[in-house]
């Protein structure tokens, strides 16, 4: 099977890669582009550890084919901090101990950022539903939800 030559935008930069139709976007990010922040928890859309935004929409990168990316734009966890400066969500997750092993954290951060862009003032219930596709085996979720709500309040306050 011949490989496809794909030109796409990843975290604002033009990239080119060769991929097999059977490789997922998650495979491409991790194995071809060395962007290993997106994690593979299940490969079936259930855990959200592979969350990215594709042309602005939150999706599971394990459920997108690498060949679908021609001309499209993806943002991953690697684009969240500006250099050494963490995004407010990242800072808050650290301060509020919203992570333990950290495996789920990139997915939660990408998903939470996408929520706050759409809705800067979500209720707890809206936040829990928005993040229902992100699983965490360690924290019990409460600290994550509180960290997102507190960040939302901080970000509204600083505007």
């Amino acid at each position: 099977m011949s490989k496809f030559h794909i030109s796409a935008t990843v975290n604002g930069e033009a990239v080119e890669y060769l991929c097999d139709p059977k490789q997922t976007l998650l495979d491409v990010l991790r194995d071809e582009l060395n962007l290993t922040g997106s994690k593979e928890g299940c490969s079936s859309g259930d855990c959200g550890a592979c969350s990215v935004t594709l042309d602005g929409r939150l999706v599971c990168s394990c459920l997108v084919l690498g060949v679908e990316m021609q001309g499209r734009s993806v943002e991953t966890i690697e684009s969240m901090a500006s250099g050494e400066k963490l995004h407010p969500l990242q800072q808050k997750f650290l301060e509020a101990a919203a992570l333990q092993c950290g495996f789920c954290t990139p997915g939660f951060l990408v998903a939470a950022k996408s929520l706050l862009e759409k809705n800067p003032n979500p209720t707890e219930s809206e936040t829990r539903y928005w993040l229902a596709g992100n699983l965490c085996r360690c924290t019990g979720y409460d600290k994550i939800i509180r960290a997102v709500l507190e960040t939302a309040a901080d970000m509204r306050g600083s505007k």
């Binding site: 859309g45 959200g48 969350s51 594709l54 929409r57 939150l58 999706v59 599971c60 459920l63 997108v64 998903a111 996408s114 929520l115 539903y129 928005w130 993040l131 229902a132 596709g133 992100n134």
Partner: peptide, 9 residues
């Protein structure tokens, strides 16, 4: 159907 991520697709 599914989560926010699934809804995106």
């Amino acid at each position: 159907i599914g989560s926010t991520q699934i809804q995106g697709r």
